[in-house]
Design a protein around this nucleic acid. Structure first.
Lengths: 151, 151
DNA sequence: AATGACTCGTTGTACTATACAACTTGAACG
DNA sequence: CGTTCAAGTTGTATAGTACAACGAGTCATT
């Protein structure tokens, strides 16, 4: 257990990180669903991506989020049914649909983002700016290390 | 936007934290499922909790994980069907079932935990001990701030 | 003791998110 | 042309979840 000096502490930190990230993941969906029953977490995420990219293809979403194209297809259909995005055929390649947020989509996104931001702001109200910056860095580093594309 | 000196940086850090935690949550389930098809994330988590507590009630699991009791009931039934836990009636209160891991459950948990730990160890291999410790602290703090019970 | 309120857990039902496989349509290349 | 590859859709199945209705057990108060 203590072959390497200090190795035990390292293992312990790893254990905590694993446990706490797992705990977070478990709760995230439910929390998001409670916060925004009208715009589910995944739809929100995809919409944010579409908006961010100013038009993208379903395949891009699938590869970025490691989702099956069928999943994306249905999510996109839902977003369209909700009037939050539009699909435009790509004149250069008729297989492709370019996705764009509608006015309503942009608005819904902004309002959802604002209330999410407010929730985080409140939750992290008593953190110092330095701690927030460090935490943000660690998360970026963590996510970046395992994913080919972290947005 | 910049009413408070330094507030912009703060907002930016919050934005990153929000985005990265969301990104993480989105991927966690799929990643866990790919890593351990035989013991789904949620079952694993509940099993770990049961093991940790050396016997607990379904209601404890529900409140701890903010899950509906019906959800827990089915998860517990699944774990029992897999032979990973046993239910013992509480002699003092017949409404209660005390849950215990079986031998097989303890073993399955250990092996899953070990491979999860290995994945984290590898992913965080190039982090210094100090960074790991800090990251762990931040996560604890973050999770602790929003949940009545963070295990 | 009987009643009523509360707690623990199960079951019926429905919905979201997801994957995989089969298929359609279009593009590209020989 | 035909073959092969890419984009998206649709059928089907599964996990995880919630809510509501319910059955059974407990406890306090009458």
């Amino acid at each position: 257990m203590t072959e390497t000096p200090g190795g035990g502490e390292r293992e312990e930190a790893l254990e905590v990180i694993q446990r706490e990230l797992t705990a977070f993941a478990r709760r995230a969906r439910a929390a998001a669903a409670r916060m925004h029953p009208e715009l589910p977490l995944v739809s929100y995420t995809l919409l944010a991506h579409i908006d961010d990219r100013h038009g993208c293809r379903a395949t891009d979403l699938a590869s970025h989020y490691m989702l099956d194209k069928s999943t994306v297809s249905r999510q996109v259909a839902t977003l369209e049914k909700l009037g939050l995005i539009e699909r435009h055929p790509d004149p250069a390649d008729h297989r492709i649909q370019v996705l764009h947020p509608t006015e309503a989509g942009t608005r819904a996104l902004a309002s959802t983002q604002e209330s999410r931001r407010a929730a985080y702001r409140e939750r992290l109200a008593d953190w110092t700016g330095q701690d927030l910056a460090r935490f943000a860095d660690y998360l970026l580093r963590y996510n970046g290390s395992g994913a080919s594309d972290s947005r």
